[in-house]
């Protein structure tokens, strides 16, 4: 079972006059097979938190620990833009992040490509795919390493509403099947309410302002009154914190 522990996490960029505090004293515990969404206005440190958790950035101070049954956890990341190597085929892009290149690994990559319905596109270059397809390759890549913890940074924000919707459904299925721990950053409160067990609300200046439990059963239908009420509650929290101001 994956355990994420964040203690007194602080992150700042720049020095002197142009210092920016991106995260301010964040404390957080996440454990088990949960889907956690992080919402907040633009610039409040969501991506920074994800980058620190995934090891791309180092904290200014504070501790971060991510373990799976006591050992360091394997991580996967889905970025806002797909970040595929344009000069490698789709399949090679998946293989690039694998520990080995065995037949077994290939088969696993193929399986995840199938799962995002791109099983026949393995030999294409990313430039030959649409934006939505590229994003799906990015998702398949993240799942194909079979990570214990999966980070996703606004993975659907560049896509049109219909594609985003079908990808959300796909993501939900994959999460149900694989039962990973998912940390999902989004601007879209509706999306967060639809997908997650738990919603973390960040406020300007990088504080963790609220932590909301979402116990409703999956799959959730936006038209369901209970879901609508939950969404309205989250919005209310937002207004109280003032987090919506620049969203």
């Amino acid at each position: 079972m994956a355990e994420i522990t964040v203690r007194n996490l602080h992150k700042e960029f720049g020095v002197g006059a142009d210092k920016i505090v991106a995260l301010d004293d964040v404390n957080l515990d996440i454990s088990g097979h949960v889907f956690v969404s992080i919402v907040g206005a633009s610039g409040c440190g969501k991506s920074t938190l994800l980058n620190i958790l995934s090891g791309i950035e180092t904290p200014s101070h504070g501790q971060v620990q991510i373990t799976e049954d006591g050992r360091p956890a394997a991580k996967g990341y889905v970025f806002q833009a797909a970040r595929l190597l344009p000069w490698r085929t789709v399949m090679d892009n998946l293989l690039f992040v694998q520990k080995d290149r065995s037949e077994q690994t290939r088969a696993r990559c193929q399986r995840y490509l199938d799962m995002v319905q791109l099983g026949d596109k393995g030999r294409k270059y990313p430039g030959e795919l649409s934006g939505g397809m590229q994003q799906r390759v990015g998702i398949a890549r993240a799942f194909s390493t079979e990570p214990d913890v999966l980070f996703m940074d606004e993975p659907f924000s560049h896509l049109d509403a219909i594609t985003a919707r079908s990808l959300r459904a796909e993501l939900q299925n994959m999460w149900q099947e694989t039962r990973k721990t998912v940390i999902f950053v989004t601007h879209d409160v509706g999306e967060a309410v639809e997908l997650s067990n738990r919603i973390l609300v960040f406020a300007k200046g990088g504080h963790l302002a609220d932590d909301i439990d979402m116990p409703l059963p999956f799959p959730r239908d936006v038209a369901d009154p209970e879901v609508a009420v939950a969404k309205a509650n989250v919005f209310r929290t937002f207004e109280q914190i003032g987090a919506l101001a620049v969203s």
Binding site: I56, Y77, F96, V97
Partner: peptide
């Protein structure tokens, strides 16, 4: 892309 490679170790 470097960050991506880093995130996946």
């Amino acid at each position: 892309l470097y960050d991506m490679a880093r995130a996946f170790g």
